[in-house]
Design a protein around this nucleic acid. Structure first.
Lengths: 207, 207
DNA sequence: TAATATATAAACTGACCAGTTCAGTTTTTT
DNA sequence: AAAAAACTGAACTGGTCAGTTTATATATTA
């Protein structure tokens, strides 16, 4: 009755379908997931699924976008936290690592990379609401730090590409390839410290 | 007739099969490639293919291993070239970038990442003759440089993880996601210079 | 030359799966 | 309560594909 200003739902089971699709895609990948599995998981009929989504591929795109957005929102929560640039960078590094080392993050990355040749728009969607998102936040952060005299960077775009890569430090590729399923806190702290040390060595101002 | 358990190891058409498989896998990915396409491309009968390889998956593993090895051999050709550590590092960076930015390198990475969940041994094989290979070469190089007093590194393992990541600098992910198909020489040079600068800033000895 | 190993084409099996259709049921709206 | 919208379940279509089998052909070698 009272749903004023609410976005008109296309149907009652939209979320249900998306959630089921999420579960199955994350578990089985894109090719590995059958639409029949998805409708079973979602507790929905096949006809219903196809009344919402024209095909399996676009259903996955929707899932991936939702997943990216959820993670971005989580990561953005607060970019700033400390006046000490070293502390701030360490916090940012920690957020980024959790961003792309999480189970869902790894899994979405795997699927998107695997399918991005046959379905290029998947790669674009993922990039725009994943890496590009992080990157633009980082650029803003670095600009402010430079303006505040806390960092000295001539090529901010390059620096914004370098820092996330430093935060991977071999761990990401191992997880993506399935060689390990988690990184210990010690390892992550070591990688963060190494990344921040190196970044500040190059771009820090003399204290 | 055919003794069970006997594995056919050699035959005239082994290379022919592998070459055809390489072409089709690189063009269409793993799922996208059909065995019929491969035998057509290789100019070989299906029965012949299956007399050499027990299934499609292991055929792909063999292709990926051969591809990795070819690229590694290419990259290893000469690790050293200059006494100047900056020049030597720049050359190493250039080799690495060409290693994982090449068409074949990107394509193998895509396929391996996409399939590594369902077929974990593919991830392992790729890692061992790709990233791990590069890494061990780099570790040796860095150890020697430290021994020669040209670098000062406390955690060589970490440094050997950081340098290749610095060489990616956002380009790799864009290529893997299909957002661009090549990087200009200027971009590559800029990335190399940035990586070497940063690396030497942290690990270089005062001149 | 005869035996053996290797290769071939083509048909076949068995399974899987995306997407459609439709008659009938449930939920929401008027 | 009636109409409209959303949903169901199950069968069905049309297609793909990995892997096997068979009957036949060619090359090597003893």
């Amino acid at each position: 009755m009272n749903a004023p200003g609410q976005i008109i739902k296309q149907g009652r089971k939209w979320d249900q379908v998306l959630e089921g699709a999420r579960t199955v895609f994350m578990r089985d990948g894109f090719e590995g997931a059958s639409v029949d599995d998805i409708v079973r998981e979602a507790g929905v009929s096949k006809a219903t699924l196809y009344s919402y989504f024209p095909d399996k591929r676009l259903l996955f795109v929707e899932v991936a976008k939702a997943e990216c957005k959820a993670q971005s929102d989580e990561a953005i929560k607060e970019v700033e936290g400390s006046d000490d640039i070293r502390v701030a960078l360490s916090q940012a590094a920690g957020r980024m690592i959790r961003f792309f080392m999480s189970d869902v993050g790894i899994q979405v990355y795997r699927i998107v990379v695997g399918e991005s040749q046959r379905f290029p728009e998947i790669g674009r969607e993922f990039y725009d609401c994943g890496p590009a998102m992080v990157r633009s936040i980082l650029v803003e952060f670095l600009k402010r730090a430079v303006a505040d005299g806390k960092l000295k960077i001539d090529d901010i775009d390059l620096a914004a590409d370098q820092f996330p890569e430093l935060c991977k430090a071999g761990l990401h590729v191992q997880m993506v390839l399935g060689l390990r399923d988690k990184a210990s806190d010690e390892e992550i702290d070591r990688v963060i410290a190494g990344a921040v040390d190196m970044f500040l060595c190059k771009y820090g101002v003399a204290d």
